[in-house]
């Protein structure tokens, strides 16, 4: 039996239209053997959580470059908990200032990959945490 592939939702919460990073990371995760679903732009926290549940993903990767990451991430994590899906791994990437990283982790974000991170970093992180 082949091992079950890790499933990842790459999501663009909020109104930010910059999806170069989201698309590149989606492709890189796919090339690394994961199943990747990309939400497209302008998703509400509710839409993202419902897509995550529907697609039964293991990981949710949020990409935000507009500076609105704190509030959006908080809402998504709260919503996941409400839906008894608090165990899904949440990662955040984009224009994230160093001082926000510990705050995001306190909220329950597993890891943050700010602008300038290498593609292999989230790949390695996900594989280490989820096996495969």
């Amino acid at each position: 039996m082949p091992e079950k592939k890790i499933r990842v939702l790459v999501a663009k919460p909020g109104l930010d239209g910059h999806d170069r990073g989201a698309k590149v990371i989606a492709r890189a995760l796919r090339d690394a053997g994961m199943e990747v679903i990309y939400t497209g732009l302008r998703q509400t926290p509710e839409q993202i959580v419902s897509a995550a549940l529907q697609e039964d993903v293991d990981v949710i990767g949020l990409s935000v470059l507009s500076g609105a990451h704190m509030g959006l991430t908080q809402k998504i994590i709260a919503r996941l908990k409400e839906q008894n899906a608090g165990d899904k791994m949440v990662l955040v990437g984009g224009t994230i200032l160093a001082k926000d990283i510990p705050k995001l982790k306190d909220m329950g974000v597993a890891e943050v990959f700010p602008t300038g991170s290498r593609l292999e970093e989230p790949i390695k992180f996900i594989k280490e945490r989820l096996g495969n």
Binding site: G14, L15, S66, G67, A68, G71
Partner: peptide, 22 residues
């Protein structure tokens, strides 16, 4: 800001967290 560019006022629910940012 992004809400303005996509035709939303600052008090629209989708504007939360995005007002005056970019």
């Amino acid at each position: 800001d992004l809400p303005t560019q996509i035709g939303l006022d600052s008090d629209h629910p989708l504007a939360t967290g995005e007002v005056g940012r970019v």
